[in-house]
């Protein structure tokens, strides 16, 4: 019995191993992309479209964070790195190609009379120093603060722009994704939340009773996110170590083309300006 088990072990290892060599005749060209977990789902979808029109190519997307994208692109472990922010000064050796933008804004219920909030007021509300809408020009009603749960990139973007620490925020409701935030807010006229502009604009268009507030007097439109006037925004970048050529170039061109606009919007990001 022991012999049979051993034999089985050795055999099963051998059955598994040669599989990749016997398909060598039509070996596909592999493109490896690694990096930001925010960009990875979007790029996976873009990759699927790319593979559909180029069957000889296989695009493998790996997640693991923006800094991993930078490191892997530098070391050559990945043809393209995924980075969900602008490149820092010491990363300027890499070439960055934006494929989409992500912006977040404050949303209120449509029935809330408050038209705008200053940055200081938003900070005070999220720190729990302003607890009633009356103080910022609304009804006499307590403010329901909706915050994102830890680990969401929108939370990081929000706290970084308003210079808040996540420990300072005392939320009444903690939500996961944008859709949940919009749903919670549309059922609670006295709530305040921040969500991705793409998701909020889409929902407002569909008739959900929410309104998007300007930040620092810039109105939260997709155009303002696209042209960079809206302040809470970041690009989603593909980065390469060298000037891209061949398949890498073709993939980057595809990811920046009109063909992927629908996919980008589906993921609630803002496409590049046309």
């Amino acid at each position: 019995m022991l012999k049979i088990l051993l034999l089985f072990w050795v055999l099963s290892l051998q059955i598994f191993l040669p599989q990749h060599t016997h398909a060598a005749g039509k070996e596909k060209t592999h493109l490896v992309l690694t990096g930001s977990s925010t960009v990875a789902p979007l790029v996976s979808e873009i990759a699927r479209l790319f593979e559909d029109s180029h069957p000889e190519i296989q695009v493998d997307v790996q997640s693991g964070g923006s800094s991993r994208g930078i490191a892997d692109a530098r070391r050559g472990l990945a043809e393209i790195g995924l980075v969900s922010r602008d490149l820092k000064e010491n990363e300027k050796d890499l070439k960055a190609f934006s494929i989409a933008f992500d912006g977040i804004t404050i949303i209120l219920h449509r029935d809330n009379p408050v038209k705008k909030l200053s940055n200081a007021e938003i900070v005070a509300i999220y720190q729990g120093k302003i607890k009633n809408w009356e103080k910022v020009g609304g009804h006499d009603a307590p403010i329901t603060v909706i915050n994102k749960s830890a680990g969401h990139s929108t939370l990081e973007l929000f706290t970084a722009y308003f210079k808040l620490k996540s420990t300072e925020i005392h939320p009444d409701v903690i939500i996961g994704d944008n859709a949940q935030g919009i749903k919670t807010l549309s059922g609670n006229p006295d709530a305040i939340a921040y969500v991705s502009i793409g998701a909020a604009a889409l929902e407002a268009e569909l008739g959900t009773p929410i309104k998007l507030l300007p930040v620092a007097n810039i109105s939260p439109t997709l155009e303002n996110v696209q042209n960079g006037r809206f302040p809470i925004r970041r690009p989603l970048n593909l980065v390469t170590q060298k000037k891209p050529t061949g398949w890498v170039l073709r993939f980057i061109q595809f990811a920046r083309s009109k063909d992927v606009r629908a996919v980008i919007q589906e993921q609630y990001f803002v496409p590049l300006p046309e």
């Binding site: 977990s37 990875a40 997640s63 680990g151 996961g176 944008n178 859709a179 991705s196 993921q267 609630y268």
Partner: peptide, 8 residues
């Protein structure tokens, strides 16, 4: 991934 990075 679904709960953290994919809205919806």
């Amino acid at each position: 991934d679904l709960s953290m990075n994919v809205p919806g």
